[in-house]
Simulated scan of single mutants.
Amino acid sequence: MAHLPTEPLLITDKAAASPRGAGRRTSLAPAPLPPDVAHRLPWAMSRLRARLRAESTPSEARWTWSQLNTLKRIADEAPTTVSRLAEAEHVRRQSMGETVAALRREGLITSEPDASDGRKTLISISAEGRALLSRIPAVREAWLEEAIAQQLTPAECRILLQAARVMELLADS
């Protein structure tokens, strides 16, 4: 189990900030407690997720985050099964079955019987699915890259990258 650091953190006062961080006041503050982080993190993630969705083109905004995450996981781990996907995404098998069915209806994935176990169906990404995965992140990442360049200092960029690694650790726990 990962532990949060207990050393003081450098806190930046954005209210006093000028563009790109010049003139920001900083102070040492005690490390936040896990309940504080657990309270604020989902809110911040939800807001950023909504903004990233808003930055998608209208034709791409119809895909849910769970559909896109599942499609990405299929691309990375194919061939796979609904059960493996459900376990990896921390959802019920039935919920994952619905997500996979939606992806199949749109031609984003293919499926075939498992040659070694006829009860299983192996899922892979289709050419259409790969094309979708190549378009959507490019639009979202372009906006995010620009926002990061305009709003964050180099030190904040390093902190954000470290936070992303920690969030991945939590997601995989």
Score class of each variant (00 low, 15 high):
Pro79Trp: 04
Thr99Met: 12
Ala155Glu: 13
Thr64Arg: 11
Thr26Phe: 13
Pro35Tyr: 06
Ala38Glu: 05
Trp43Gln: 15
Gln150Ala: 06
Ser126Ile: 00
Arg24Gln: 15
Leu10Gly: 02
Ser46Tyr: 03
Thr6Tyr: 05
Ser46Val: 02
Trp143Cys: 09
Leu68Phe: 00
Leu4Gln: 03
Thr153Arg: 01
Thr80Asp: 04
Ser27Tyr: 04
Ser66Glu: 14
Ala163Gly: 13
Ala15Asn: 15
Leu122Lys: 07
Ala147Tyr: 01
Ala78Glu: 15
Glu98Cys: 03
Pro154Cys: 13
Arg119Glu: 15
Glu146Gly: 11
Glu168Met: 05
Arg158Val: 15
Val82Asn: 14
Ala22His: 04
Leu48Ala: 14
Leu9Tyr: 07
Ser59Tyr: 01
Ala115Val: 09
Ala44Glu: 09
Asp172Trp: 06
Leu161Cys: 08
Ala138Cys: 07
Arg130Tyr: 06
Thr70Lys: 07
Thr26Gly: 06
Ala127Met: 08
Glu112Ser: 14
Ala138Asp: 12
Arg135Thr: 05
Ala29Ser: 11
Leu41Phe: 05
Leu122Ala: 14
Trp43Val: 15
Gly129Asn: 14
Ala102Asp: 11
Arg53Cys: 10
Ala75Gly: 00
Arg73Ala: 15
Arg140Trp: 04
Leu133Met: 07
Leu133Thr: 09
Leu133Ala: 07
Glu128Lys: 10
Arg158Thr: 14
Ala142Pro: 04
Arg92Cys: 10
Leu41Thr: 09
His90Glu: 11
His90Val: 00
Arg119Pro: 04
Leu122Pro: 11
Glu141Leu: 08
Gln150Pro: 01
Ala171Tyr: 06
Arg62His: 11
Ala149Asp: 12
Glu89Ser: 06
Glu87Ile: 05
Arg158Met: 13
Gly97Arg: 03
Arg49Met: 10
His90Ser: 10
Trp65Ser: 12
Met96Ala: 13
Ser111Met: 09
Arg49Trp: 02
Thr153Tyr: 02
Ser83Gly: 10
Ser56Pro: 00
Glu87Arg: 06
Leu170Ser: 07
Arg73Tyr: 05
Leu85Ser: 07
Gly129Asp: 15
Asp114Met: 07
Arg130Pro: 04
Ile159Leu: 08
Ala22Ile: 05
Ala50Lys: 03
Val91Met: 15
Pro8Asp: 15
Pro154Trp: 06
Asp13Pro: 01
Gln67Val: 05
Ala163Lys: 01
Val91Asn: 09
Val166Ala: 15
Ser126Leu: 01
Glu60Tyr: 03
Arg62Pro: 03
Ala31Val: 09
Ser124Val: 08
Ser134Val: 01
Pro30Thr: 14
Asp114Ala: 09
